[in-house]
Design a protein around this nucleic acid. Structure first.
Lengths: 107, 107
DNA sequence: CCGGATCCCAGCGGATACTG
DNA sequence: CAGTATCCGCTGGGATCCGG
């Protein structure tokens, strides 16, 4: 029998992506077409700039979102899901459905 | 527009369940019919008893697994997925599929 | 407007030893 | 065999201030 470790778990890549605090929420908001940095900041009441920036950078590095800068004044930055990110969305919806179904119950 | 916070994120319940270190792996092994404590310990090379016990207790508390004790000598304990846990399994498989598809690529 | 840099602290989890 | 108890190092992330 194959033994798994934390580093080759077949689902670990997804777990790593969504695990950090606020990460799933950031991803959710972007998937709901809240694409601008400021908009995200407003939607996510209480997130620190440090964390939001870290999450966006991580998601970009993972190829889940792409970062587009508009050289307006003042500057605007938008984040949109890539193909890879769009493919992840159904999983997020499945997670939401499961969460709603079993909300507060242990049955 | 509805503003989400970390505590009412629609997918947070699932995120909370699988986020902890080793958690996804423990869940995976149980879903692969490795149901005994000792078997899990062996399959998960390197996990500490502290963490394994904590994960199993948490999953039981969440209603994802049920704990069955066999009063043999020496005692045997098995953990099996509940209905709630079985409903979670498809999500784990979807996560695995996504992980395999995008393994190491950022496309 | 969009972040980067720094400081700081709670809590997660590893190692180890012990119980029923 | 199947855990619990204790100690402790390390990292994640909040608050705050600064720069382009």
């Amino acid at each position: 029998m194959k033994t798994y470790t934390v580093d080759n778990c077949p689902i670990q890549p997804v777990v790593d992506i969504i695990s950090g605090k606020w990460t799933s929420l950031v991803l959710w908001e972007i998937s709901q077409k809240h694409n601008h940095y400021g908009e995200l900041k407003r939607q996510l009441g209480g997130i620190s700039t440090r964390t939001l920036a870290a999450r966006l950078k991580m998601l970009e590095k993972q190829g889940i979102v792409s970062r587009n800068v508009f050289p307006t004044t003042p500057p605007t930055v938008e984040y949109v899901l890539t193909k890879k990110g769009l493919d992840l969305a159904p999983i997020l919806y499945a997670m939401r459905d499961w969460s709603e179904k079993y909300d507060n119950t242990n049955l």
